[in-house]
Each structure stands twice: as C-alpha cells, then as structure tokens.
Design a protein around this nucleic acid. Structure first.
Lengths: 351, 351
DNA sequence: TCCACTTTGGCAACAGTGTTGCTTAAGTGC
DNA sequence: GCACTTAAGCAACACTGTTGCCAAAGTGGA
C-alpha cells in the first residue's frame, strides 16, 4: 500500500464512520478516537472530503466543559448509486443516496426469454431513467443483481434454469457498453448476495439471507462484507442435506433443503416449510455465528409472518443458551442491496 | 491508519510474500510487482527487514537478458514461535521457525482434572523448555490450543465437558503471568481453530478442519484467516442437523452430525461415520466454497484411510461439476497450528 | 463581570513514507 | 567489442500523518 492508497483508506474510514452515525453526526474528536488518528489528521481529511462535497457541517454538539464540537455528517445527497434487480419476469430498480436511502424507484416488466441482449437493453434503460434526475457525475456506480450462479469477478452469467442461452453471457460488460464510456463502474452479483447487503442496518457482524421462490438460495455477509468464495460459488444453501437418504432432489442428491422445502410448499404446508428453512438456517447460524437472518423471495412474501415465526422458533430451540439471531422478512430489498454493493467501495469495502 | 502502521503493513506484506516463496526466494522486482510498490520502495523495505535480520540473500536468479536478480528469502531461523496443544489428557508442544517448520517437539502427560492452575503451570513449563534452546528475544509469540468453546478475544475458557471448574478460567492470562513480563504475547484459541491453521500449505482460499474424537468440532479458515465469528462461537459443526427428527442428541436436538457419527463409531461402522462426516462437510463446502478439507482427532487417527476415502467419495458425488476439494487427514497438527496463530501477526494476519 | 479552566480546531514546521530522476553494476547477445 | 537490457542504489521530492503552538468558544466559580 502506498501513500495515495493510505489516503484513500483513511478517507473511506472516515466516510464509513460518518455513514454509520447517520443524521446524528460525529465530531472531529470522536472521529479521531475511532480512527486512532490525531485530531489534526482528521481535520485534514475532513477538509478534503468537504472540498469534494461529501461531508457537511451538522450543527454543534453539547459542550462538555469547553468549546462544543462541530458535528459533521455525510452529505448524503451529493452522490448516488443505482441498483437493479433483474429477475426472470420483472425488473426493479432504485436510486439511493450515500446513506442507502431510496430516492427514486422504477419497476417494469422483464422477460429472460427475450434473450440476454434485450434484458441488458432494459437494464441500461432503467439506469438511464433513474440517472436523468440526478446531477451528472453524481453517480458512483451501478449494481445489477441477477439469478445465480454467476461469476462476480468477471461479471458473467452462469446457468439460468430454463434459459440455456444465458449461460456465459457477459451481462456486466453488456450493461456497461450500453451506458457508455463515461458511466461509472457496473457490478454484477447474485440476487442472494444483493439481498444480504441491504443497507440501513449495522453492517458489522454476520448475516444470512435466505431466498425461497422457485428455488432456495442464500447470501452470506461475514464481518460486514458479502462472502462470495474464491469462485463466486459460496452461498449454495438449497442443496444442503438435511435429511440423509431423504427424497431425491433435482440436483441428484437426496434430502436437500430445497426439495424438502418445496415439497412442503407444494403440499400447502407452509409451517413445515418454515421449520425446514429454520433447521437449515440454524445449521448456518451455529457454524458461522450469525447475528441476523433475513428471509425473502416469492414464497416468503406470500406469508412472511408464518416464515419468520417458524424460523425464529427453530432458532430459539437450537441456540443453546447463546443469543438468538434476529429474524425478519425483507420485502424485496434486492435492488437496494445491489445499489449498496455499488456504493460499498466509497466506504472501503469490496461489496 | 497512520504512517507507522503503513510501514508495518508493507513490511508484513513483503514478509508474507517471502514466506510463501519459501526456499525459492524472490527478487526485488518480483516483490515490487506483487506488492504494487515501486522497486525503490521495496529496496527500502528490504533494507529495514535485513537490518532486523528477518530477511537474507539467497543467491542469484537466472538472467532474463540483463543483470540477474538478487534473490531474497525469509531468514527462517531468526525468529520462532511456540505452539502448545493442551488436550484433556496430553500436552504437545512445538517450536517452529518463521516458515512454520517444526524445530523442536515436546510431549508430556496432562490431566484437566488437576485443575486449570496446574495445567497452566505445565503449559508454561513446556514453553520454557522449548525456549531455552532458542536465543532470547527470538520468540515472537506463544499459541495455546485448548478444547472449546472459549473466548478467543479475552483468552478465557468456556465449558469443558466433564470439568466444570474450568468454565471462565483465564488461561491466556494465567500462562502469560507464569512466563513473566518479558515474554512475548500469548494467544488462546480452540483446538479446532488451531487445527485449521496448520502451516506449510497455501494460506489462501477456504479450508475446513473436522475434528472427531469424543465430540465433533470444526475449524474454518476463510480467505486465509481463521474465522471465529463475533463471539468466538463459529465452527459449531457437531450439532448441524443432518437427519431431521433423527435420534436425540445430548444437545437436546435430534439428528445432529455428532450423534449420528458417534453412534456409527460405537457400532464399529467407520465407513458410515465417514459418510456422515462427508455429508456434513459437503454442506459446508457448498455453502462456503471450500477448497480443502482436513480431518483429525482420535477417531480419524485410528483409521485415516477410511475417513479420507469416505469423505472424498461423498464430496465427489455432491460437487456437481465443480472442483472437488482436497481431502487429507492431518496427524495432530494442532500444536503446529497454535504456533502458526502466534506467528500470524508478523505476516499481517490476525491469526 | 471577570477570570481561570477546558475543549475544539486551525496554522506552521516536521518526520517519515513511498516516488521520481538519474547513475552505476552486471549480465546477454549480435 | 559494443549495444542493449535488467537490477539496484543515491538524492531530491511530494505528500502523508504528527507535533507544537495558538486562537476561538464554551463552562463555572469568585
């Protein structure tokens, strides 16, 4: 790491702390304590960030026996990111500010059967539409979430069930090309990874997002960063075996969480599906010391109460004395999570 | 991060690269390319490290049409670390050099029933014995591995089955006190975490260590770092449910990996135990994109071939087209792993 | 109202990082 | 023998965070 990288690192550190503080703001002295830099260094960093318009004054804090501190906060509206959830039959897009707050939404039809080029067109069009209202140059990045598996590093799609022509399609590059050379970076990630990156809550700790629709997938966020594995393959949750020698699954295995869950759903037995989801979640919670479990996907959306209650019940029974993770249904946060991934580099995270 | 921290970061970066290169050595130009620093910066860093005795010349490389590069390598013997595996009935300790190579071994009886203070005495005595032969000041750290759960951050033991008086005992501090104020830092970690940190192989990628003896535990190494979770609780593998509504486990659950495995072992059906271990491992491999699975513990040691073969068979069946992780039995690498954890800070890793 | 005290935060000089420009050393290959 | 290539160091430099100092802006007691 060299000096420019050091500078960027510290800038990102301060921005991340200000973001976490949100509207409350933070004083220079507090920033110095949190960053372990000297107050003078913080002042210099703040000077830079303010010159770029990223940080603004936020009034004064109470005095503790001396001059009251000048509070600083993120100039949230100074920059934006766009997140797009390209699902098989629907497109949802959002524009968010630096705090991750949704500023603008867009929703439209989509059909993977039209082929990947047509979908890339639609995605680019949605981005253009959302950017028109934002000042030029204020856009930091575009995040695109699509059904996995896919290769996050190079932005290439994998097998999409039912749409063989999608395999190997470089969606990231296709969208970037359509947005033009002056556009900010485009990211492509799995919908489950975007789902786990939903902003607005503390980014620290470990989170698990379970997505139950036509299949069962998961996203992991460890130590505040999405965990993708070396080959973008992490998060394979649907084919976790929960019932040795159980019913055969389409993957060739037996007793996978997915087949058990989907069979219960097909029977109309949602509580049982929730219990199975809960058992699978509890395995991951124990393995990775997970703090928060979020549930999403069409099936969960159809009865969020049943699923959160069912999963919570299993987790309570299975965490032996330890803290029970928070369980909540996240109503389509995938687009917001995709935007968050595009925002992440500003705060020194990969995504 | 400030300038001294930057310096330390880059020093650690260079040391880590030299360690990975091992005896082959590396030239300054290669280091510059790998670190993305300028050759001149690398020269300065090497100068510092050589002055401290951490790096030494290693001959010359072949010429590629110009002056041949001066190869550098880690002066492996210049510093050491000690790792202690404090098991319920036995103590194993090693002294390793900076490459993680074992320089000296020690093995002695131990009995947790004697109480934690007596065990701390034994651990400190073993460390003293191993350090006597190393030059003063060459010891970088001491790692102690003990049965979990325990709190790695503060170095305090948790519940040890059968030894209730151990709960809450501050073993790290106890050992540090006995070694005196001039001794290097002491670390305490779970034996499974030490088991996964065994050196000598590439530290990159994701590894899983499964330990099968009187219980079933796991250690995780993600992106080259031991993953402990926020509360040192990660790696709970024994109570992963693999057979919904299966036989009751001592944890209160049903169908846990541990109870299934131990029942098979009790029946003398080791291939079945291996298969269950394999199914559990396959779940984790899929979830975390694991590259390498290591097996250890008394039961595995009794028939390593059976277990590696059985686990490998399940992994081959369950990785659908993807790469099959490497499977190997690690014969008591726990002490070496504990030493590795003590060595880690030198190379910029937490452990 | 004054004054001592505390705390914040900026200016200027500084120490130390990696970088740039240049030079020397030590090879290869025609 | 000579042109060329590559490696590696010295000196000057740009820019980082740090230190020393001082002004600003509060609190609280006399």
């Amino acid at each position: 790491m060299n000096l420019p990288a050091l500078r960027g690192h510290n800038d990102a550190l301060v921005l991340a702390l200000l973001r976490e503080a949100g509207l409350d703001g933070l004083g220079r002295t507090e920033l110095a304590a949190l960053t372990r830099l000297t107050p003078q260094a913080v002042s210099k960093i703040i000077g830079r960030l303010r010159a770029e318009g990223l940080v603004a004054d936020a009034g004064r804090g109470p005095s503790t026996g001396g001059k009251p501190r000048t509070l600083l906060q993120l100039a949230a509206g100074a920059r934006h990111a766009v997140g797009v959830h390209a699902d098989r039959d629907e497109l949802r897009a959002v524009r968010v500010d630096m705090l991750g707050t949704v500023v603008e939404r867009f929703r439209g039809p989509l059909d993977f059967a039209d082929g990947p080029d047509a979908v890339a067109d639609e995605v680019a069009r949605a981005v253009d539409r959302l950017c028109g209202n934002a000042g030029a140059g204020s856009l930091l990045g575009v995040g695109v979430a699509a059904p996995g598996p896919l290769d996050w590093r190079v932005g290439v799609m994998g097998r999409v069930t039912g749409y063989p022509e999608w395999e190997g399609y470089p969606l990231r590059q296709a969208v970037a090309d359509r947005l033009g050379p002056d556009a900010p970076p485009v990211l492509l990630d799995k919908d489950t990874n975007a789902g786990v990156a939903v902003p607005g809550r503390r980014a620290v700790g470990n989170s698990l997002y379970l997505h139950l629709s036509t299949g069962l997938g998961a996203g992991l966020r460890l130590r505040g960063e999405v965990f993708r594995g070396e080959r973008s393959a992490a998060g394979e949750f649907g084919h976790q075996v929960l019932l040795l020698d159980g019913p055969p699954c389409r993957c060739g295995g037996r007793g996978c969480a997915e087949v058990l869950c989907l069979e219960a759903v097909a029977r109309g037995d949602l509580p049982e599906a929730a219990r199975i989801l809960g058992e699978g979640a509890a395995n991951v919670v124990a393995l990775l010391d997970v703090d928060r479990v979020w549930l999403g996907g069409r099936v969960v959306d159809s009865a969020p109460e049943v699923f959160t209650r069912g999963v919570r019940r299993v987790l309570e029974a299975r965490t032996l004395g330890g803290p029970v993770p928070e369980v909540a249904a996240s109503e389509d946060g995938v687009a917001e999570g995709a935007a968050e991934l595009a925002l992440a580099p500003l705060f020194g995270r990969v995504g």
